[in-house]
């Protein structure tokens, strides 16, 4: 008995058991069964019927699929690109402060901890064509009232704007942490060598920061691909599907049309895209990440 109790394996099993069970049941097995469901026809009631690649074939021959895919890409690329550039800018400014760093950081971080539902409701009001603040603000520079959420040309842009507002604080905090790992000697040395502020930034700081920027980009990519709440609240995918992006479409197919097979196929396409992006970024990392431990 004593031997058993002293045995690490025994105790490790006890300690890991709850998490192992939970993660297997609620994460691992659903991921596998989702893969199976994507090859079936199923409306949630009764048993799934195996149909082979039919869901994938119908997906790839559906014009809406390409529209959704295209919009998802536009949404993700714009969000991530603007978010990362702006957060580098904000982080550098924040890092240069002597007092008030925490204050400003808190303000920029507020949207991150606010629920996307609350955030979307706030923006819904700002986007209001008649009484909203955005149109009021733009009226000063002579821009006429825009129906942000009801206009096909502006709806996706509006969703992008909300996403950037929501996530920029998160990227900024990561980049500030990255900036703090840059040894001061590097910056001092470049100053002594007579480099200007801009030269120091582009030739020293940015290359040393590239691992962090790389990581932030991947995280934002993965998060943006999974956007749902803001679309649900602000546009419900409309007008004319112009803000219908992958997770929202998945939700529609599963829980409004009860087409579980197609929904799971969409889920796996999404999974595959995210995986592909992560892998591509890992591979090109060598080209634009200059410094790594």
């Amino acid at each position: 008995m004593k031997k058993v109790i002293n045995n690490d394996t025994f105790w490790a099993f006890i300690f890991i058991f709850p998490s192992l069970l939970g993660i297997l049941i609620f994460n691992f097995i659903p991921t596998l069964s989702s893969f199976y469901i994507s090859f079936t026809k199923w409306n949630l009631l009764g048993n799934p019927q195996f149909v082979g690649f039919k869901n994938y074939i119908s997906l790839f021959s559906d014009p809406l699929f390409y529209k959704v895919l295209y919009q998802t890409f536009i949404f993700v690329f714009c969000t991530v690109f603007i978010e990362v550039i702006l957060s580098i800018f904000i982080a550098v400014l924040l890092n240069s402060l002597i007092i008030g760093k925490t204050f400003f950081r808190t303000i920029y971080f507020l949207p991150v901890i606010t629920s996307m539902i609350a955030g979307s409701i706030l923006w819904n009001w700002i986007f209001d064509p008649a009484y909203g603040f955005l149109n009021y603000f733009l009226s000063f520079i002579g821009i006429e009232k825009i129906s942000w959420l009801a206009d096909e040309n502006w709806a996706l842009f509006s969703i992008i704007l909300v996403s950037i507002w929501k996530n920029i604080g998160y990227s900024t905090v990561l980049i500030v942490a990255g900036l703090q790992t840059i040894p001061n000697e590097c910056i001092e040395a470049s100053k002594i060598d007579g480099a200007s502020k801009y030269q120091t930034f582009f030739k020293i700081v940015l290359p040393l920061l590239s691992p962090t920027i790389f990581m932030v980009t991947i995280v934002s990519f993965i998060n943006s691909f999974q956007t749902f709440d803001s679309v649900y609240i602000l546009t419900s995918g409309g007008p004319k599907n112009s803000t219908n992006i992958m997770v929202y479409w998945l939700y529609k197919n599963a829980f409004e049309y009860y087409n579980m097979g197609k929904a799971s196929a969409i889920a796996y396409v999404l999974f595959f895209i995210i995986l592909l992006f992560t892998l591509i970024q890992w591979n090109i990392r060598k080209k634009w990440v200059f410094y790594e431990k």
């Binding site: 993660i23 994460n27 991921t31 989702s34 929904a263 799971s264």
Partner: peptide, 29 residues
């Protein structure tokens, strides 16, 4: 603690973090 398959199980756990939660939605529901 030291135990068999420690790294494998840890990797299995971490790998679930890579999977978008939406993939699990239908089976979980």
């Amino acid at each position: 603690l030291e135990f068999k398959f420690k790294n494998h199980i840890f990797l299995l756990f971490l790998s679930t973090m890579m999977i978008p939660t939406q993939v699990n939605l239908v089976p979980l529901f």
